[in-house]
Design a protein around this nucleic acid. Sequence first.
DNA 1: CTGCCTTACGGGTCCCGTAAGCATC
DNA 2: GATGCTTACGGGACCCGTAAGGCAG
Lengths: 296, 296
Amino acid sequence: MELRDIEIFLTLAQELHFGRTAERLHVSQARVSQSVAKQERRLGVALFDRTSRSVSLTPVGRRLREDLQQAVDLLHEGLARAEAAGPGAGRTLRLGVFGHAGHELRPLVDAFRARYPGSDIQLNEINGSDAFTALRAGDTDVNVLWLPVAEPDLTVGPTVLTGGRVLAVPTGHPLAVRGGATLEDLADHHVVDLGPDAPEYWVAAMVPLRTPSGRRVPRGPAGRTFHEILSLVASGRCVHPLGEIAARYNSPPGIVFVPLRDAPELQYALTWRSTDDSPAVRALARTAAELGPITL
Amino acid sequence: MELRDIEIFLTLAQELHFGRTAERLHVSQARVSQSVAKQERRLGVALFDRTSRSVSLTPVGRRLREDLQQAVDLLHEGLARAEAAGPGAGRTLRLGVFGHAGHELRPLVDAFRARYPGSDIQLNEINGSDAFTALRAGDTDVNVLWLPVAEPDLTVGPTVLTGGRVLAVPTGHPLAVRGGATLEDLADHHVVDLGPDAPEYWVAAMVPLRTPSGRRVPRGPAGRTFHEILSLVASGRCVHPLGEIAARYNSPPGIVFVPLRDAPELQYALTWRSTDDSPAVRALARTAAELGPITL
DNA sequence: CTGCCTTACGGGTCCCGTAAGCATC
DNA sequence: GATGCTTACGGGACCCGTAAGGCAG
């Protein structure tokens, strides 16, 4: 008899629909079914009458819903009160984002500020090369990073942003003329080398090491910040793949962004130090989870 | 934030002692420490002031205790009401026990009857050979079996009985004259063969296959029920190891029970079909866990 | 040095997702 | 045939125990 099961029961009691319940709680439909079945087995009573087309509460279920709802309300109230008493409650979270992604994250930041007036969010710009070092050094509390992120000391939270990809190419470049690029094209041009500070697998998720057919993608001149990358591209020495979002708020001279059509969608998720399991971080994660990912 | 952690917090808030809290909840002391530390990390507030010699609630902890206590009371109340509405509540549990073990289990049966007036317990006698088949066939709902029991389809609950062991020998047997036996002695006499119905490892926990020094213990004539075993021993054809409890309520003619001094203590635990996760079974398990094992 | 609480580490359990099954419209 | 609830099965996260560490009397 765990809290999670009670939450599932209460949501289903409200929705009266397994699919919608699963969606709201971000679990699979099968899980809702399993959870309710377990509850009923333990209690020895049917809580819902259901066919494959309709779901309704039994009298016992109706009564249980009232009791449990009251209990969990009280419980959350008490926990919230204790949390509010803590020093961490009014903390200002430093959220590390790439370039202008902060603009698109506006709904999340606004929702967080509205729900937790005591806390605040400050946006810090991060670069691909130091995204991990900044987080580990404590320069930011939470970073918005593209996936996959698989670091033992970091926790990956909900996805907050999804979008396509573009390739930054110099004006007049053949690919600019063509108006689009594929992953296969990357082997024919140099890309910026971000250096060794970020994990190789993570950089590779944005800048592939090889094309789909297996040809190597040449790593060209070294650059660390977003603006360094742009100058290198503008100088005509290389091209570079970026998130679609980079193209949306930048129109740097000498550069054209062309869509990378066959690359899979990028997902950006909240990431924080596993040791920093504080209320403010959890509150942001909860808010993001309930808001769902923003699609570019 | 799970219900188990809340239970730990509430118990510690009452006991103000990690060791006693662990004991009451049947978990390790480390677990209590881990759970409380996690709670405090999540809430960002200290709930207890503690040195290695004293534990006390902080003001925040005191307030949280009141809130949570009220919430969990409400919660259990609601669940109990739903459970009481079920048909399983008034069910009669068939409890399978060896021989006269039911006498010793009286405190458990009485406690269960007092706490769950709607339910009842009926004692069924089982034998070593059919203990598992009876349970699987549904002839009993819960069996009291000596450990270890490791069957994928059976769940092992709390230990209800612990005690020593004896060896049944014919009157006038050299071991009877000596007034005691060791495991090593078993290699010099035949023991009853219980047949293939029960798992080998389980039978071996009562009737070893080999002595500590590695000599084989000869399996003699076959017998299935308790009384068959006693007749075989009385006939002088073999000896047989049993739980101390067998000696306590039996004084069959032609048989003497001598202590098996170097054998480890026997533990008897509740066991039931894993699929039968009903309120009555759970209620009995809960009662047994809170009562603790009965020592012979 | 002895309780008593905390930290480190590994194993087992169970939550949960995927995929297939089955019933109702 | 489509929609929607249930069952089967495998993987991974987390609970929890063991053992060692640290701190007060």
